[in-house]
């Protein structure tokens, strides 16, 4: 699995954790009929994923996660979907699926 894939996976997994750790959200899910979520299982998967990530991306991701609750944002029409700033043309990577950093908010950017 590539570095990009690992980081995207980490991001989706952190969204799962956000739901699983929030008592109000989990109570709501229980009322809807869903079974109890195993937070520890998700955290174990996260630890395994972290061990495979490059420290440089992990540092940027972790800082943005701590600051904003999201470490990574997708880019749509050259707009960072984290802080909604329009990114300069020069910020566009040559290849789709590449990671860069948002110069405004510092989130890792996923260009697709």
């Amino acid at each position: 699995m590539s570095e990009t894939r690992h980081l995207l996976q980490l991001h989706d997994l952190d969204l799962l954790l956000e739901e699983a750790r929030d008592p109000e959200l989990t109570a709501r899910l229980r009322r809807l009929g869903f079974g109890p979520g195993d937070v520890a299982a998700i955290e174990r998967s996260r630890m395994r994923l972290l061990a495979q990530l490059d420290a440089r991306w992990l540092g940027s991701y972790g800082r943005a996660l701590q600051r904003y609750g999201r470490g990574l944002a997708a880019v749509r029409d050259r707009v960072c979907l984290g802080c909604y700033i329009t990114l300069p043309t020069s910020a566009s990577p040559r290849t789709r699926g590449t990671l860069t950093l948002c110069e405004s908010c510092g989130r890792v950017l996923y260009w697709h």
Binding site: Q9, L13, L16, L32, D38, V39, A41, I42
Partner: peptide, 25 residues
């Protein structure tokens, strides 16, 4: 992402219905 959610807790809601769900990039 969906498989991980299922491993962490089934998304069956009873009466023969399952509602797997995710927010994802």
């Amino acid at each position: 992402t969906l498989v991980l959610r299922e491993r962490a807790g089934s998304t069956a809601v009873g009466k023969g219905v399952a509602v797997p769900h995710a927010r994802s990039l």
